[in-house]
Amino acid sequence: MSTDASGGEATGVPVTVTADAAREALSLLEGEGMDTDVSGLRLFVQQGGCAGLSYGMRFDTEPEEDDQVTEQHGLRVFVDPASMNYVGGAKLDYESGLQAAGFHVENPNVESECGCGESFRT
């Protein structure tokens, strides 16, 4: 399901969320005492990093009026219109391994990434 916060159908290709990412984010949301029926994970793009743009994520209690809201595996993801231009069609995953664990954005819009994978250019 993908709508804008006013209830209308969203434009653009939504962000997809893996079951692992949703499970981890929901666990963190609940740990913060947030209502997972209303709250969600905000994915956004900001200026920064050696390649020019970087991803940001935070929990929000509710979407903004013009956000695209995607709900998958019980997790609500909020993306503002400007960020959607960069992350539309991306996949949010959670990876855990021996050296690092965390959320990872697989973005088909990226032309190049920096060596550490923290910033990108479209």
Rank of each mutant, 00 (worst) to 15 (best):
L98W: 08
S96T: 12
G115H: 09
P14K: 04
R42T: 09
A22K: 11
A51W: 03
L29M: 14
A22C: 11
H104S: 06
V87P: 00
S6G: 07
Q68C: 05
V105L: 15
P14Y: 08
E71N: 04
E113L: 15
E32W: 12
S96A: 15
M84Q: 09
G74Q: 14
R121M: 14
L53A: 08
E106P: 01
G89V: 01
E24F: 12
T122E: 06
D20T: 14
D67R: 01
Q72G: 03
S6E: 06
G12I: 02
N85A: 13
G33S: 14
L92M: 04
A21K: 03
T11C: 08
V79R: 00
T3I: 07
V45C: 09
D37M: 07
H104C: 03
R58I: 04
L75P: 01
G31R: 14
E62F: 07
A25M: 11
D4W: 09
T61D: 10
R23V: 06
L43F: 03
V13N: 13
F44L: 02
S2D: 07
D66N: 07
G97Y: 10
G52Q: 13
V110G: 03
E30P: 06
S119Q: 11
D37K: 13
S83G: 01
T36Y: 05
Y86C: 08
G7K: 07
V105F: 07
G12C: 05
G7I: 05
V45N: 01
S96R: 09
L41K: 00
V17N: 06
C114N: 13
Y86I: 02
G33Y: 08
S83M: 00
V105N: 01
T11D: 10
N107G: 02
D66Q: 02
P108W: 03
V87M: 01
L53R: 14
E65M: 05
G31S: 14
T122L: 10
F44P: 00
F44H: 02
T3Y: 05
T122P: 14
D66R: 01
T3N: 04
A100N: 10
V69S: 00
M57N: 00
G56D: 03
V13L: 07
Y55L: 11
S2V: 10
A100I: 05
G40E: 04
G74A: 13
E32P: 03
P63H: 01
S27H: 15
K91W: 00
Q68V: 08
E64F: 12
V110A: 13
G117R: 10
A100H: 06
E111R: 12
C114S: 06
P108A: 04
A90R: 04
A51T: 05
Y94M: 02
D20H: 05
P108L: 02
D60S: 03
V17A: 09
F44I: 00
